[in-house]
């Protein structure tokens, strides 16, 4: 075992010494049905709304709802180097700043924030036509004072 451990440690040290620019960080592979959200602690099941963020040293946080990512950031002020969101249609990772966001009460996201991300403006507008709501870019969304939906 020892040689293997040493090799593993060597690799880890090498990786650590290389530093991790945000461009080198890769989005996580979420184990749906097993991994839990860093903000609410619930099991992440719906890839349409999953989000993730990483600090420069590669520390990863994952979320079941884009709104939970924003709530976590507001509460904990982490120094994230990169933030990813899932495309609602394809469930592929997007850089948060590249996505278009639809904010609509008709979107039933896991924690009720009602935010969906899209890779293109066309896709977002198409869904807006079906569900209504407001179209935003990342800067607007992340600077907005979001509140959880009121019960009644």
């Amino acid at each position: 075992m020892r040689p293997r451990v040493l090799v593993l440690l060597g690799i880890l040290l090498f990786l650590a010494s290389c530093g991790q620019e945000s461009g080198q960080l890769k989005p996580p592979e979420i184990r749906y049905g097993r991994d839990t959200c860093a903000q609410c602690g619930m099991i992440i099941s719906d890839p349409r709304f999953a989000a993730a963020a990483a600090t420069g040293d590669g520390t990863m946080s994952i979320f079941d709802d884009i709104g939970d990512l924003l709530a976590y950031r507001k509460k904990n002020r982490p120094e994230w180097a990169v933030i990813w969101v899932h495309d609602y249609n394809t469930q592929e990772w997007l850089r948060a700043e590249d996505a278009w966001y639809l904010l609509s009460p008709a979107i039933h996201s896991p924690m009720g924030w009602g935010i969906a991300a899209f890779a293109s403006e066309e896709a977002a507008r198409a869904r807006q036509g079906e569900l209504g709501g407001e179209l935003l870019r990342w800067e607007e969304l992340s600077s907005r004072e979001l509140t959880l939906p009121a019960a009644h």
Binding site: M42, I43, M111, P149, A150, A151
Partner: peptide, 11 residues
């Protein structure tokens, strides 16, 4: 089930 009963924003 995943969550047997899950209550949110309810009283």
């Amino acid at each position: 089930a995943r969550y047997g009963l899950h209550f949110m924003y309810s009283q």
